Amino acid sequence: GPKHNYAYHTEAMDRAMEGGIDDVGLGVLYGLEMYRYEFCGQLMHAEHLEAVHGVGPHTISVPRLKKADDIDPTKFDNGISDETFAKICALIRIAVPYTGMIISTRESQKVRAQVINLGVSQISGASRTSVGGYAEEERPTDTEQFDVSDQRSLDEVVRWLMETDHIPSFCTACYREGRTGDRFMSLCKSGQIQNCCHPNALITLKEFLEDYASPETKAIGEKMIAQELENIPNEKTRSLAKGYIEKVAHGERDFRF
């Protein structure tokens, strides 16, 4: 019979990895197919990448079918509730503990708050879904591909994360240092990546506070950075991080571990 969409997806990713792309992400749009099938397919795909290429997914995205100009989600039979969505996020985190999990602004603030505590590690803020949307001062509502539920500014999202004891990170160090594929996975699975992620989060947060944050957000962030610097266990790393953050405060940029 005809292959399911997931079979084509798997084949394409295998060809990409055979061609030298060592970092890949998975994601299914929940709501199109029976969610149990999609969920199992996603985990089997992660297992397959591990078995064949020795490198699992760098990220897993969990988008849900949402309202758009020409889409009414209630007309689809396979839509999933917030409770089921949260369960999927928790089970992905348990099953693939090393992966980054991504959630978009299509989900509400309430849902995002819930799943961040269940293992989601990457969230977007102030997203625009229309072509050229970021060039517009006001959000263009008539050309958006789908509705954005969480419409808070990036400053508001960053402040919210800090107020709920999460450290906002703008870090891209691993990509820029070439820590991808098996290099990234070995660090991640051993837990050693924390020695890079934690100080890099603080350094990039400091850059955001200096360049973009409102006074209120900056005050909360400065307090968090001061506290978290003391939580860096390695003395040399802690000293370097403090030095980098001091340099950022004086206008220098782009430090990383």
Rank of each mutant, 00 (worst) to 15 (best):
V131E: 08
K87T: 00
D23N: 11
K66S: 07
C40R: 10
D70Q: 10
S214Q: 02
E83H: 10
V62G: 08
S124F: 03
L29W: 06
E18R: 10
T164Q: 05
K3D: 08
W160D: 00
T143H: 14
A7S: 07
R139Q: 13
M13Y: 11
T180K: 08
L240H: 09
G41I: 03
T74H: 12
R128N: 13
I193R: 14
L202I: 01
E156A: 15
Y6A: 08
V148R: 12
Q194N: 04
I94N: 09
G100F: 06
A241M: 00
D69K: 02
E235W: 00
G56K: 14
I225L: 01
F76V: 06
K223C: 10
R15T: 11
H48M: 05
Q227Y: 03
F85I: 06
V131D: 06
S121I: 08
K223F: 10
Y6H: 08
Q122P: 11
E83R: 12
T84Y: 04
A126D: 09
K223E: 04
S214L: 04
S186A: 15
S121H: 12
E216Q: 02
E50P: 11
Y175A: 14
S108P: 04
G41A: 03
G132W: 14
G100T: 11
K189Q: 03
M224D: 02
P2S: 14
I88Y: 06
V157P: 03
R183P: 13
Q227S: 06
S61G: 03
S214V: 06
E11M: 02
M185N: 13
A68W: 07
H45T: 11
I220A: 04
V248G: 03
F255H: 11
P215D: 05
I167Q: 05
E177S: 06
L49W: 08
V28P: 07
E107P: 04
D182R: 15
S104A: 15
H45E: 07
T164N: 08
A135P: 09
R159M: 02
I193S: 05
G243E: 01
A173H: 00
G19Q: 01
C171F: 02
A95L: 12
S104E: 04
L91P: 12
M162S: 10
S169N: 07
G119K: 07
E107C: 08
S121K: 09
R183K: 15
K206C: 05
V96L: 13
Q192G: 11
N234M: 05
D14E: 10
N231I: 07
L65Y: 05
F146I: 05
V248C: 01
D182N: 15
D23V: 12
K189L: 12
S124G: 10
G25V: 10
N78H: 09
E33Q: 08
F76R: 07
K189P: 12
S186M: 03
E216R: 04
F85W: 14
L26C: 10
R256Y: 03
E138R: 13
N234W: 05
S61C: 15
K236P: 07
E222I: 14
I193E: 09
A51D: 15
P215N: 09
G56R: 02
D82G: 13
T143Y: 05
K110H: 01
S124Q: 15
P63T: 09
M13A: 02
Q151R: 11
V158A: 02
E18T: 07
M13Q: 13
V55D: 04
T105I: 14
P73H: 13
F170H: 07
A241S: 03
L154E: 12
A241I: 00
M34L: 04
R183D: 06
